[in-house]
Design a protein around this nucleic acid. Structure first.
Lengths: 364, 364
DNA sequence: AACTAGCACTCTAAAAAGGGGGTTGACAAA
DNA sequence: TTTGTCAACCCCCTTTTTAGAGTGCTAGTT
C-alpha cells in the first residue's frame, strides 16, 4: 500500500482542474474522466480520476449539468484557474511587436484613438472590446475654451491632460460678446490649468465672490460659465464598445440568450459605465491594474454567463479610464489577460505623451 | 360564365398581395390560399385564390419556400407594397405628440443629440436606429477655432451650420504662439463663415498666396493650418448606431445568420457610411426625402435579408446627413416609414434652429 | 490506503419514425 | 371564370429508438 504525499495529491488535483478548464474552453463540452485519463494523466485510471473529480465537485469547483455526462467548471474554478494556474505569461516579443505596429497604424491614421483602440481589442481577442473614459470631474484640465456660436449661445470645449476632449453647447441667458469670452477664457486657463474640474469650479467661485479685478468686466459671463460647469453631466464619461458582431460570430446559438442580455446592459450605457466605475474604484483601492470578473462575480446578474477582463488607465497619478474586453465565460483567459494588459499599456503611453510638453509661459 | 372586368381583377390581385405581405409580416409563416379565403376574401373560394396566387408567383411577387405549404412575398412584392399599397399615412396626432415629447426630453437633457435620436428611433421601431452626419467638406462652416495644447500641438475645432462639431489634434512642425492662433482664428472666421470647408481651403489659399497683409504675421501658422485642412479625413463623417440589442430581441433564431452579416457591415463603418452616402446622393438627385431599400435592393449582398428605411436631413439647401432604421425585411413598413419621416423632421428642425441666430457683426 | 477493473445504471444528443395540419395542382363540373 | 373535390406533398412537432459517454459503486489488487 502506498501513501500519497499531500503535495503530490494536491498537484494532481490542480492538474485535473486546469485540464478541465482548458478542455472545456476549447471544446465547449462537459469533460469526463475518460478524457482526462487519455489526455493528460495517462498513468492513472479513469476511476481514480472520477474520485478526484467527485472531490472537486464537493468543493464547488466542478458540477455536472446532468447526472451522467461529464463535468464543467464553475465560476469558482475559473477564478482559481485565473488566480493560481494561469501564470500570467508575458506575450511573445514578436506578437507584442505586431500588436504595437497595428496600434500605431490605427492611432496615427485616424483621429479617434479610443474607438480604434477598442476595435483593436475586439479584433485580437475575438470578443467585444471597450474603452471607457471616466467623468472628467476629477481629471486635471489642460484647457477650457469657449467658442461663440450665436449671440446667446456658445460651445464649451474642455481638454484634459490625458487628451480627452469634451464639448457641449451652452445657452446663455443674455447676449455675450466674443471679446468677453476671450478675456474669460484667458483668465480661466491661466488659473486652472492643471487643476481638476471640481477644483476649477471652486477657484472660479472664489474669484468671482471676492470680486477679482481681472474678472470685473466679465463677471456676468463668468457666473454663467460657472453655473454651466456645475451641471451634473458636464464633462460626462465616454464609452466605446466595438466588435459585438465578432462576439456573435464566435458564439454558438446556445449562448444567444446570454448575448441578448449583455446587449441590454451594454446599450444602457449608464448601467455599464457605473459597473466600470466600481471596477475602477476597486482597482485603485487595491492598487492593482488588471481586473477579471468571471460570470456571477459581475455585479449585474445579466452578465452571469460572461466575463470582463479590464485594466485601468492612469495618467500621472489619476485613473482616467478603463479598457478591456467582454466575452463568454469560457474564454482563453491567459491570452486575453496579457492582451488587455499590453494594449492598456500602449494606450496609457499615448495618453501620457499627450501632455508631455506643457505650454511654456512665454507662449501665453 | 362571367367575365370579370380587368380593373376588378387587378384590384383583387392587389388585395391578395397586400394581405399576403401583411399576414406574413405579422405571423412570419407562409400564407396559404385557405387563410386568405377565410380572412379577407370571404366571397371567393380558396381555389380561385390559388389561381391568382399562381399568377402572382409567375410575375415574381410571391414564391414558395417548398413545394407545398404557402407562399411568401418576394422583395418585389415588398417593393410594390411600399410603393403602391401602403398609403403613407400621417401619424396620429396623439402619437406624434408623444414622440415629440420624448424627443425633446432626450435632446434637452443630454448633450449628444445624435446618439439620443438614434436611440429613440431604435426604441420606437423595435429595430436598430442610426444617425449619420456626412463629411463636413461641403457643409457650411459656422466656426473654425484653434486651441493651443502644447508648443507644437493644437486642437482644431470646427462647427458647421447644422451644429455638428468636429475636432482633431494637429501636430505643428514648429512652435506656435497662442497669440498667433488667435489672430488667425479671427481672420478665418471673418472670412469663411458661411462657406464650405472646400471653399474655405480655396479662400485661405488665395489670401496666403496673394500675401494678404492681415496674414503677414501668421503666414507660417496659416500654411500649416491649410495643410491640415487638406488632409482627406479632415472633418470626417460620424455614424451612430443604437439598438442592435433590440434587434436581437425582436428576431428569431432563424435570422441569426442575417444579423451576424449585418453586424459585419455596420461595424465596418466605412462600408455602411459609403452605402449611406450613395443613398443621400440618390435622394438629392430625385429630390426626395424618404428612401426604402428592401433586401436585395441594398447595394451590399450581406444585407439581402434586411431593409433600410432612411430619410435625408437638410439644413438650408444642403443635405448634411441621414437617419433611419435598419431591420428585418419583414417589418411594418407603413409604421416605420412614417416614424422615420417624423423623427427626421424633428431632427432637421433642431439642426435648423441651431443657426437661426447668426452672430451679429458688432459682436465680433 | 490508494488505486483499478468491471458492471449496472443514467442521461443526452442525435437519428428515425410517425402523425396532424395545411397547401398545392389538377380536373371536372357549374 | 369560378368552384368543389381529392390525391399527393411537405413541413413541423412529438415520440421512439439507438448509440455513446459518463458515473457510482463494489470488490479486488498493489
Amino acid at each position: 500500500m502506498r501513501i500519497l504525499k499531500p503535495e503530490v495529491a494536491k498537484a494532481r488535483k490542480e492538474k485535473i482542474l486546469r485540464w478541465v478548464v482548458q478542455q472545456y474552453v476549447e471544446t465547449r463540452r462537459p469533460v469526463g474522466s475518460q478524457m482526462i485519463a487519455d489526455g493528460v494523466l495517462k498513468d492513472v485510471s479513469s476511476a481514480t480520476i472520477r474520485n478526484i473529480m467527485a472531490e472537486l465537485e464537493q468543493e464547488g469547483y466542478l458540477y455536472q449539468p446532468h447526472t451522467s455526462g461529464g463535468r464543467i467548471p464553475t465560476d469558482k474554478a475559473y477564478r482559481y484557474y485565473v488566480d493560481y494556474l494561469a501564470n500570467v505569461q508575458k506575450m511573445a516579443a514578436k506578437e507584442r511587436e505586431q500588436i504595437e505596429k497595428q496600434y500605431d497604424a490605427r492611432v496615427s491614421e485616424v483621429n479617434n484613438m479610443l474607438v480604434q483602440t477598442s476595435r483593436l481589442l475586439a479584433m485580437l481577442s475575438g470578443a467585444a472590446g471597450f474603452v471607457y473614459t471616466a467623468q472628467v470631474d476629477d481629471q486635471r484640465i489642460q484647457r477650457l475654451d469657449f467658442i461663440p456660436l450665436a449671440p446667446g449661445m456658445m460651445l464649451t470645449v474642455l481638454v484634459t491632460e490625458s487628451g480627452a476632449v469634451r464639448h457641449w453647447p451652452v445657452h446663455m441667458a443674455q447676449v455675450i460678446s466674443p471679446a468677453k469670452l476671450q478675456v474669460l477664457s484667458r483668465f480661466i486657463n491661466d488659473e486652472i490649468a492643471g487643476h481638476t474640474l471640481a477644483e476649477a469650479r471652486q477657484i472660479l467661485w472664489q474669484y468671482l465672490h471676492s470680486g477679482h479685478r481681472e474678472l470685473a468686466g466679465v463677471a456676468d459671463v463668468a457666473s454663467q460659465v460657472l453655473k454651466d460647469m456645475e451641471r451634473p453631466q458636464t464633462g460626462g464619461d465616454e464609452l466605446y464598445v466595438e466588435g459585438i458582431g465578432r462576439l456573435l460570430e464566435n458564439t454558438s446559438q446556445e449562448d444567444y440568450e446570454d448575448l441578448k442580455q449583455m446587449m441590454r446592459v451594454v446599450e444602457e450605457r449608464d448601467r455599464f459605465s457605473s459597473l466600470l466605475n466600481e471596477k475602477m474604484a476597486e482597482l485603485d483601492k487595491n492598487n492593482k491594474r488588471l481586473s477579471v470578473s468571471i460570470g456571477s462575480e459581475n455585479a449585474t446578474p445579466e452578465l452571469k454567463n460572461l466575463s470582463i477582463v479590464s485594466t485601468a488607465c492612469r495618467v500621472g497619478d489619476k485613473t482616467v479610464g478603463m479598457l478591456g474586453i467582454i466575452g463568454p465565460k469560457h474564454m482563453e483567459y491567459t491570452r486575453v489577460m496579457s492582451l488587455v494588459n499590453y494594449i492598456g499599456s500602449l494606450l496609457e503611453a499615448s495618453m501620457n505623451t499627450w501632455n508631455a510638453l506643457p505650454l511654456e509661459d512665454e507662449d501665453l
